[in-house]
């Protein structure tokens, strides 16, 4: 990790106002991603992975409110920028690959034209130049016969092809930070592998900081140098991949690893994680949101969460780490 991180999120808290109360979706989320680094945000559904990404990109649902925190990018706080300034950054310096490419692409516009739009808007390309650049980008994400495919509508392409177009869109302006939100969910394993190869390869080539959001710990472990484990709006552990996989410190991360079916696992040996995520609408949420499910719970867990950091950068928010 380089000295100055490409993106640093500090103490980010997000609330959603709903009819049945305020949902405290994120609470003091903090992490940093270095230039050229690929880091993963891992957790169960509802743990706040996507909300973190949306908050940083400033595309939260209007019901969501950022109550505290900073997201530092190149010396500026993304959370303090005006709508107009952030729109300049989005797509150019900060980019995002969305889950389900078919719904994220415009269904009634040819994919080549969608790519050209980005280039004209953010890279100042002329419309003629954007066309050739768009085809160039499609070639880069290894779409066969890019000249012809540029004229296709999203429905004419397979899921893997659509995802390649999404990647081309996200990378068109060579962003400094890329957030990939479940980029391979719903794709076949063979396609998943080629898409992940492509993302990591392009990331290494352009030196982008990449955040991979996934619920698949195996995928994160294979492709990322660092893993941040989220649970109910907290980052409970943040560690280099090998350190986490060999010796997870947070009880939740350990359970998550034990529950993931791996090559050598046997069904009886796989652990389940008892209990559910706590109701984030409760006003009296305990400091540790995992404590109700935790086997290592003690009285100390009533105190505000600590943050132990080891020399190798392995951080854990737990009173009784493993």
């Amino acid at each position: 990790m380089s000295a100055v991180p490409a993106l640093e999120v500090r103490d980010l808290s997000v609330e959603f106002r709903t009819r049945s109360g305020i949902v405290r979706a994120l609470d003091n989320v903090g992490f940093a991603v270095g230039k050229g680094e690929t880091a993963a945000l891992v957790g169960e559904s509802g743990s706040g992975k996507s909300v973190t990404a949306y908050a940083v990109m400033r595309i939260l649902d209007p019901a969501g409110k950022i109550t505290a925190g900073r997201a530092m990018f190149g010396g500026i706080d993304l959370l303090q920028q005006s709508e107009k300034d952030i729109a300049e950054l989005r797509g150019r310096d900060l980019s995002m690959i969305f889950q389900s490419p078919r719904t994220a692409l415009n269904p009634i516009r040819r994919v080549g034209a969608q790519l050209a739009d980005v280039l004209v808007r953010h890279a100042g390309a002329t419309s003629a130049g954007a066309r050739t650049q768009a085809i160039e980008m499609l070639k880069k994400v290894r779409i066969p016969d890019p000249e012809r495919r540029a004229m296709a509508y999203p429905f004419e392409l397979s899921g893997g092809m659509c995802q390649r177009v999404m990647i081309a869109l996200a990378l068109a302006c060579r962003p400094a930070v890329l957030i990939a939100d479940e980029p391979t969910t719903g794709l076949d394993v063979t396609t998943q592998a080629t898409i992940m190869d492509l993302i990591t390869e392009l990331a290494a080539e352009t030196g982008m900081a990449t955040i991979l959001i996934t619920h698949d710990l195996g995928l994160a472990a294979e492709y990322c140098q660092r893993i941040m484990v989220m649970h109910a709006g907290h980052v409970v552990e943040d560690a280099p991949t090998s350190a986490l996989m060999q010796r997870a410190l947070h009880p939740y991360s350990a359970k998550l690893i034990a529950a993931t079916p791996a090559a050598s696992a046997e069904l009886d040996r796989l652990a389940s994680i008892p209990g559910n995520l706590p109701d984030l609408r409760r006003a009296d949420l305990p400091p540790c949101r995992y404590c109700a499910r935790c086997e290592r719970r003690t009285d100390a867990c009533e105190q505000p969460l600590p943050r132990h950091v080891q020399p190798d950068g392995h951080a854990v928010a737990c009173w009784n780490p493993l």
């Binding site: 066969p144 397979s158 063979t190 592998a193 472990a221 791996a262 090559a263």
Partner: peptide, 24 residues
């Protein structure tokens, strides 16, 4: 073989060549 090589596996060495499918 390509299917099996595509299963994410943290234990796999990064250097080992893996079968990847190209084309449609």
């Amino acid at each position: 073989r390509a299917l099996i090589d595509s299963i994410p596996d943290p234990a796999r060495s990064k250097a080992a060549p893996r079968a990847r499918l190209s084309g449609e």
